[in-house]
Amino acid sequence: MSEPTANPHHVVGPKVYLAIGGTLLLLTGATTAISFVELGVFNAVVALAIAVIKAMLVVLFFMHIRYSSKLLKLTVAAGFFTFLVLISMVMTDYISRAWGLW
């Protein structure tokens, strides 16, 4: 088992920040541009996919999770997992409430 403190105080440099910031701006432009193209349901899919990519870039680089211990990685994962539990278990009610009533 590796030491979780294997990367003590990894300093992320301005080059990485610039690259990530630039990518984020590009993706923002892309998601707005794509919203003007008619894609049906895929408008939502693409927009959310881009949002997820942007959020992951922020978490991994701006928030240093890429360089952090497994514990922190797991913590982030636990947060999203519980959020998914909330969404999916609530949806079990909402998607099936009207079954048989149509």
């Binding site: 992320v12 610039l18 990530i20 910031g21 984020l24 701006l25 923002t28 922020v58 680089f61 701006f62």
Partner: peptide, 8 residues
């Protein structure tokens, strides 16, 4: 996003 960059 700019402010996130400056914060970083």
């Amino acid at each position: 996003i700019g402010s996130s960059f400056t914060m970083a």
